[in-house]
């Protein structure tokens, strides 16, 4: 019995295929074009190596911002529940999930089943999200994937205010113009983001253990900064970006079993 979890995020789309509880296929692609068409392509691509087609799936659940536009999904579940479920399944002792996605970051409190007790999300501004890091990487002419490592090289991070993405960008550009070392600017950016995320997640009273998910979890500089501010070691799953899709696939499995 094959089931699929699809997570259409603002920057990346993710897919997971489960066969009897085991992950047999996964894919991460940039979200582009019309979501209906893109999600169709995504599922075809992830199923191809398995020699399967969408019609072979017993169930599919969609999550993420594009969740309502996935034509082959029988059900939509919010990313909040999906991240909770995915982490709860892998790490039943985790109580707080911090998800750092492309367009928002969230704090999710879960029970030992991965079921959501409480959650909080950032407000409209992109500061403190993956998109923000992308804008900063561009402004600094550094590759996004290098940002985290570079942040670790600094001994005297710059103070950077990030209440607003646009203002932060101009502050970064002026620091570059003043000849400040890039690593210090980058470290400052990471500190500021971590500060912002932690103060938001505190609104739901953080309980240990803590897991970090989403694209932001792949940034080692950010993870270290978060650990400092949280005063606790965090768990980063092997594929942090795929946890939402994994949770969705687990919901799809429930659907298939209850049929």
């Amino acid at each position: 019995m094959y089931v699929a979890g699809i997570d259409i995020g603002s920057i990346y789309s993710k897919a997971i295929i489960l066969k009897d509880n085991q992950v047999v296929g996964s894919l991460v692609k940039r979200t582009g074009g019309e979501i209906k068409v893109a999600s169709q392509k995504l599922i075809e691509e992830v199923l191809m190596p398995l020699g399967l087609q969408a019609a072979d799936l017993r169930a599919a659940v969609a999550t993420g911002y594009g969740r309502i536009s996935v034509p082959f999904a029988q059900k939509q579940v919010t990313e909040i529940s999906c991240f909770g479920r995915g982490i709860g399944h892998l790490f039943p002792y985790v109580r707080t999930v911090i998800d750092i996605g492309g367009q928002d970051s969230k704090g999710i409190k879960i029970d030992d089943q991965g079921s959501v007790d409480d959650f909080v999300m950032n407000d409209k501004c992109a500061a403190g999200t993956g998109r923000f890091l992308e804008v900063m990487a561009n402004a600094l002419e550094v590759k996004l994937e290098d940002m985290g490592l570079l942040a670790l090289l600094s001994n005297s991070p710059e103070e950077i205010g990030i209440t607003c993405t646009v203002f932060a960008e101009s502050q970064v550009i002026s620091l570059v113009a003043k000849g400040r070392p890039k690593v210090d600017i980058i470290a400052g950016i990471h500190q500021a983001i971590a500060e912002r995320i932690v103060s938001m997640v505190k609104m739901i009273r953080i309980e240990e253990r803590i897991a970090i998910t989403g694209g932001g979890a792949k940034n080692i500089g950010l993870v270290r900064e978060l650990e400092k501010k949280l005063g606790s070691k965090v768990i980063v799953p092997e594929e942090p970006q795929l946890i939402g899709a994994y949770g969705a696939a687990l919901f799809a499995q429930d659907l298939a079993r209850n049929e």
């Binding site: 919010t78 909040i80 409480d118």
Partner: peptide, 10 residues
Amino acid sequence: QIRLEAFFER
């Protein structure tokens, strides 16, 4: 919508 739907799921 995501906030409200997550609230309904809760």
